[in-house]
Amino acid sequence: MPSAPPTSSTSSTSSSTPARRRAVAGTTAALALTAFLVVGPAPAALAADPDTHSTSAAALADVDYTTWLKDVAAVVAEARPYVEERAKDAGREKQAIVLDIDNSSLETDFHPFWELPTPAIADVRELVRDAHDKGVAVFFVTARPGIIHSLTDWNLKRAGYPVDGLYVRSLPDLFVEVSTYKTEKRAEIEAKGYTIIANIGNNTTDIVGGHAERAFKLPDYDGKLS
């Protein structure tokens, strides 16, 4: 299992002390809470065979992993020439790309939730990296709750994404429509002087509301993906 986010530890030889065991238990509990908050409780079938994509929540919803990757690649292929052309102006204006996270940047529904970090969607990551190398800032706006901000930030960076900003939902945000919350966050990014050249997400709530030059919707198969 890949390593979890670094936690504080001592160099003492008492690594098996109750304090260390409590720290390990706390990390495990945090990961379990994260999984529940992000993808919900694990289906019974998911635990039967954790080593294959066929056990993912998406597969249980009849979404084929290979087909999904091909469909994602088609959207990225549409976005790439536009992003590359706009990024030529990154030196003359503050530009940004805004992304959703689950099944838009990370393979959330196609990866066992207990194995961290959740891997990046390779085609999306390469598009974002190329734009970032040209001077385009990269912001993530997610409906994930603030309690897992640090873990989400760690996962994105471990998966290879540049992260210039990460917006998660605070308590008040939990009581408004996701689309309204995400639109407000894009407006906040614009208020910082950025032109959002592309907004990428897999759900309609990720991309409605404007405040972006172009929006690119990745597949969610009528809501079968989170």
Rank of each mutant, 00 (worst) to 15 (best):
D123A: 14
V76C: 01
V128L: 04
N103M: 06
A159I: 04
D49E: 10
Y194E: 02
V38G: 05
R21V: 07
A90R: 02
Y181W: 09
F36K: 13
N202M: 04
L99S: 12
G193Y: 10
T205D: 09
P81Y: 01
K157H: 08
A25P: 07
A73D: 15
E84P: 01
D123M: 00
V136M: 03
A96S: 06
G210I: 06
K217M: 15
G193P: 05
Y161S: 03
D130R: 03
D153G: 03
H132S: 13
S16I: 02
I147Q: 15
D173F: 11
F110M: 07
A187Y: 10
D62F: 00
D206T: 07
G26K: 14
D133W: 07
R129S: 04
L156Y: 01
A47C: 11
H111L: 10
T17L: 15
T13N: 13
I101G: 11
D102K: 08
G40S: 09
E184Y: 06
P219A: 07
K70Y: 05
S105R: 06
V38C: 12
D130M: 01
A35G: 04
G91A: 14
S14D: 07
V72F: 03
R20T: 09
A29K: 11
R80Q: 13
V83E: 00
A58Q: 07
D89G: 02
V208T: 13
D64M: 07
T10V: 00
T180F: 10
R158E: 12
V75S: 00
V75D: 00
F110K: 08
T27A: 14
R86A: 11
Y167F: 12
G201T: 02
D220C: 09
D64W: 02
S15V: 10
S150M: 07
G209Q: 02
P6R: 06
A191C: 04
T108K: 10
V63K: 01
E85G: 00
P50Y: 05
S179T: 12
G40Y: 10
A19W: 13
H111G: 03
I147L: 14
V208H: 00
A159R: 08
I121E: 05
L31D: 06
T66M: 10
A44F: 06
P162C: 04
S3Q: 07
T205R: 09
G210K: 07
R125D: 01
N202T: 04
D133Q: 09
L37A: 12
P172Q: 10
E126T: 12
I148W: 09
S9N: 05
L37N: 01
Y161G: 02
V141I: 14
S56I: 06
V75R: 00
T34S: 12
S56Q: 09
W68I: 03
K217G: 08
H132F: 03
E115Q: 11
V163R: 02
T13R: 11
A29S: 13
H149N: 09
K70E: 11
V83D: 00
V124M: 04
S8F: 13
G223F: 13
K157R: 15
H149F: 12
T34Y: 15
